[in-house]
Simulated scan of single mutants.
Amino acid sequence: MNSLGILAHGPTPCPRPWADDPYTEAMRTGSGPLWLRREDGHRQRLDLERWFAPPDQADWTLLSRCLRRGLPTLDIGCGPGRLVAELQTCGLPALGVDITHTAVSRTRGMGGNALCRSVFDRLPRENRWGTALLADGNLGIGGDPSALLRRAAELLCHDGVLLVEVEPGDLDERVTVAVEDASGRSGPTFPWARLGAPATVRCALLAGFAPIDAWDCRDRHFLALRR
């Protein structure tokens, strides 16, 4: 048991995208490259090098907002855990959730609290998180940003804040993708989404959020949404 009152190990999920594909191996080895490959053949490279590195200047624009609020923080889709581990190093209660066992193991190895669960599973502290993070493209989880934002609202406390990384421009893209490695090996297909700030705000308003801030740093784009 830890400071958030959660067990050190969550339930074992059934095989699913991100947990039964080349992403699992990348989380184990700490190396890539990897891409999200769409059905039309277009590929988007995943920024594994940044995910495995210490938080950079753009990451710190997120972390500093969490630390200023001083409230327990949930990192949705925490990956190898650089954000949640840094928050805990700074003394802030935090929890990462990710469906990939190897990602959760890496997070725990860095000293971060993490559970191997989907954001749509039952989670600790529902309706009591002060801040939540959707960084590194995780607004795409499930391919339905509206459903994901509604779920985030359920997890946050009254006046809780969701910090979201968005795509540049007025993008609103819903696609089917698979994770692919350099050899061409890929995992199962799954729905994904990529939204710019205007589309994210439209979905957020319907989910009960109000935009309170927007900023850019190092070619990355962010919004703060208050429940």
Rank of each mutant, 00 (worst) to 15 (best):
A26Y: 15
T176Y: 05
A132I: 13
E126C: 12
G111A: 02
W215M: 04
G10P: 02
T100F: 01
R185L: 07
Q44N: 07
E49K: 07
L133W: 08
F120W: 15
D56Q: 13
W192H: 08
P72Y: 07
A135P: 04
R226E: 13
R194Q: 13
W35K: 02
R108P: 12
G130D: 02
V164C: 10
V177T: 13
G96S: 05
C116H: 14
R128V: 08
T61P: 13
G77L: 00
L133G: 06
C217N: 08
L87N: 01
W51F: 14
P124C: 10
G130F: 11
V177W: 04
L223H: 02
T89F: 15
W51C: 12
R38D: 13
G91S: 01
S186Y: 10
L163K: 01
L225W: 07
E39R: 09
T29W: 08
E167H: 03
D40V: 13
G169D: 03
C66F: 00
S146K: 12
V164Q: 04
P188I: 07
F190S: 05
L163D: 01
A26E: 12
L223C: 11
V164K: 02
C203M: 02
S64A: 09
N2Y: 09
A152L: 15
P168D: 05
C217D: 15
A114Y: 06
H9D: 11
P17E: 15
D75H: 08
F52H: 06
R108D: 11
L48F: 04
L67S: 00
D136Y: 10
A178V: 05
R38F: 13
D219F: 10
L46Y: 05
C78G: 05
L92A: 02
G187Y: 12
E180H: 02
L83A: 12
M1W: 15
N127Q: 07
A207F: 14
D98K: 06
L74R: 13
G137F: 02
P93I: 01
R128Q: 08
G140P: 05
T176M: 09
W215V: 15
G142S: 04
T176G: 03
G5Q: 05
A8Q: 03
P55I: 07
R16E: 14
